[in-house]
Amino acid sequence: MNILDDLKLQYRLGGIAMRVMYWNIACFIVSLIFFYNYSNGFFNFPSWIALSSDPQVFMFKPWTFLTYAFFHDGFLHLLFNMMVLNFASSLFLTYFTQKQYLGLYLLSALFAGVAFALSFYLSNIGGSIVGASAAIMAILVATTTYSPLMNVRLFLFGNVKLWHITAVIIILDLMQFRLGNMGGHISHLAGAFFGFVYIKLLQNGTDLSTIVSKTLDFFANLFKKSPTTPFTKVHKNYRKPTEKTTSRIVTKDKTQQQIDEILDKISQSGYDCLTKEEKEFLFKAGK
């Protein structure tokens, strides 16, 4: 089993959080190939990817309110965001579903993008942003709002309350507000605010993530072929099942049982705990 097959298997079994991280990494690789200026060492993102504060740009490219949240301006930018995303995702998915996760990620990115564009336009400032920080802040603050007293074990610090970690990150954003990257900090705080509001509405019975779920389901069903029922002849067969049929059913049950055991092992100890044979078996079974 090669590295590519291993990555494919992790993508299929890792859940939505793993897939979102893969999407961010893939977009960064694309940006390195097409948008990085190696002569001056800077990224030059086109206006159809980065979110611009100019209404004459974003009004004709409304998709940039989402695309900006999957691209990063440098390796360290990507690395730090993916570390925080991995941390926040594992906590969020302890309490909520994968559909809620994806819905919150996309909606918070959209809300933060609108907040950035509106604030810059009203301040008569021009600029553009990229980065997943706003959506990540929404996921982190949402989890903190739901369970602020959760104990999180940090290296060198021991057990720390989740709200302490979130408070430090927000305070750092506020302290750097006027120092530089004002647009980024505006989107971070907007994402944090959206995460807080999302949980409060959810606790009152309103799940905003269903907007995303229903939209994705609509487009999925739109392109899905309607199943046809072909005409079939019905033959009566009063013979007892042969031994061969019974054998196939038993084999299928054993295979499914082995798959279930491996999936249970992944949920308890993670994908990396699997042996090479178990990974190869799971990859072949998933084809």
Rank of each mutant, 00 (worst) to 15 (best):
M83F: 12
D6C: 05
L110E: 07
I125V: 04
Q203T: 05
N40F: 11
D73F: 05
Y101C: 11
F34K: 12
A134R: 01
A112V: 00
A135R: 05
T228Y: 10
L179P: 11
K233C: 13
A285C: 12
M59Y: 11
T143Q: 00
L78K: 05
N204V: 07
P241E: 09
M59E: 12
S226I: 08
D6F: 02
R153C: 11
N204S: 13
T64R: 11
D6I: 07
V168Q: 13
I186L: 03
L32Y: 05
F92E: 00
F75H: 04
A109S: 11
K224V: 09
K254T: 14
G205L: 06
A192K: 00
A115C: 07
K265M: 13
Y68I: 09
A190R: 02
L122T: 13
G195V: 05
Q257S: 14
G158C: 05
F157G: 02
M83K: 04
K265W: 01
Q100R: 02
L4G: 08
C273T: 13
S133E: 11
Q258M: 12
A135L: 00
N86D: 08
V197R: 06
T228I: 13
T251S: 15
T94P: 01
A17H: 03
T144A: 01
S269C: 13
N159S: 15
Y105T: 07
M18V: 05
Q203V: 03
D253Q: 15
S269P: 00
F71E: 02
L51C: 01
F70Q: 01
N44K: 14
T245A: 13
T251Q: 15
L118M: 06
A26M: 11
T232C: 14
V197L: 07
T144R: 02
I199G: 02
K279D: 04
N86H: 14
A88T: 09
A115V: 11
F157I: 14
Q268N: 15
T145P: 01
F92M: 08
I16T: 07
G14E: 02
C27W: 09
P148K: 00
F45N: 08
T97K: 13
I211V: 12
D54N: 10
N221M: 06
F70R: 08
G205I: 02
K161M: 08
A220V: 13
K99Y: 06
I165T: 07
Q100E: 07
F223T: 08
I171E: 12
E243M: 09
S123C: 12
S90H: 05
K279C: 02
F75Y: 06
F35S: 00
N181F: 13
A192L: 01
K279I: 10
N124K: 10
I259W: 03
I25F: 15
